[in-house]
Design a protein around this nucleic acid. Structure first.
Lengths: 200, 200
DNA sequence: GGTAGGATGAGAACGCGTTCTCATCGAGCC
DNA sequence: GGCTCGATGAGAACGCGTTCTCATCCTACC
């Protein structure tokens, strides 16, 4: 009977939805705690408690603190990329486009400094099991730059190298900023100079 | 009596030397443990035991694990820089000089992969008290590149920006390599491409 | 020569990431 | 309906970075 099938499907769907909701609550709780006190304030017991989930369940879904934060970071970078793709920069030269995109991205990241610092810390953690998520995040960042460089055009080999370098500079800048070595303005200026240096 | 004075001086000198020797033993112990098992194998109790020093003494000299590793890293980068300054590259163009220096530096770092990975991990740690040492290490790396770019000449503003970008790329490359995201060959190739891209 | 003070040794104690144990609950299967 | 099995909850337990306590010793000062 189709009703039975649909009922069963709905029930399993419900279950899957519950799990998805739990994961979403976990990510939200981690982000909230990061917003309140940065990396150190994201304590696994607190994340689990705030998401109303047992500690073991948290670890079943995210096998370490860094994986949890990296999942949040991947979410955030995907949102960022979608938002940028939705309203791509219209400035003329590639350098200007890249500069604008990076400036926009930095503004978005600076809006929640503690959160960003926590996520960037996770990006540079030495957790060997987090390679895949890190690669995914790196791909998002590289993709953001790439679409800004060639406005929909094909990717040259030379362009690819430029994108790679810009991605490296971006990552280093975020690491320095998250580590307290430079402020946001310096970071933005450094990115701007790099973009013009490489694309003009 | 001069004998008394010299005796006292010798005694205080002895004391200072003992402290210096202790610090050196601590750095050596940390490096050894890192060589054997990377960042995770550098356990503070083990470092103290191997250096034949109490745990509290270790923490009096290096206020955290990351500061200990960063001190070792600063040592290593200073040695590296001195060695490079002693035999500077003789290739023609700045790009070739930088490429050679970075290749040499990478070879030196790859000789002890676990040690380097541990030190780089510390470089990207979120320890807020380690800002000064991190800056010193960053200055060393930037200095290495700078002397390679202008072979003793003056530093242009443009040159300074190029050096900064190359330093960022170097740091990112080491972070990716230490995190297991790329291998040594990729790292070297990326640095080479960046040098030629920025200096040719 | 005696004494205060800082450095060291030895080790317990604490915090937090991570793992483990066990009880419970709900969904699919007979 | 009874059963099995994977997911979850609750919380203890473990490992390691870090801090704290207290005894001891050595140097500087009087």
């Amino acid at each position: 009977m189709s009703a039975t099938t649909s009922g069963a499907t709905r029930r399993t769907g419900t279950r899957a939805l519950e799990t998805a909701a739990r994961k979403a609550r976990l990510l939200a709780a981690a982000t909230e705690l990061a917003r309140e006190g940065g990396y150190d304030a994201v304590q696994m017991r607190d994340v689990a408690a705030r998401a109303e989930v047992a500690l073991g369940t948290l670890y079943r879904h995210y096998s370490s603190k860094d994986q949890l934060l990296l999942a949040a970071m991947l979410d955030q970078t995907e949102v960022l990329r979608a938002r940028i793709d939705q309203r791509p920069p219209r400035a003329g030269t590639p350098a200007e486009r890249v500069s604008e995109v990076l400036r926009r991205a930095c503004r978005a990241l600076e809006r929640e400094p503690r959160v960003t610092a926590a996520l960037v810390s996770a990006m540079f953690s030495s957790d060997p099991d987090a390679i895949d998520v890190k690669r995914a995040v790196g791909d998002q960042l590289r993709g953001i730059i790439e679409t800004a460089v060639d406005g929909g055009g094909d990717a040259d080999v030379e362009v690819e190298a430029v994108v790679e370098v810009l991605g490296s500079v971006w990552l280093s800048a975020m690491a320095f900023w998250a580590g307290g070595l430079t402020d946001a303005a310096t970071m933005a200026q450094r990115l701007d100079r790099a973009a013009h240096l490489l694309l003009d």
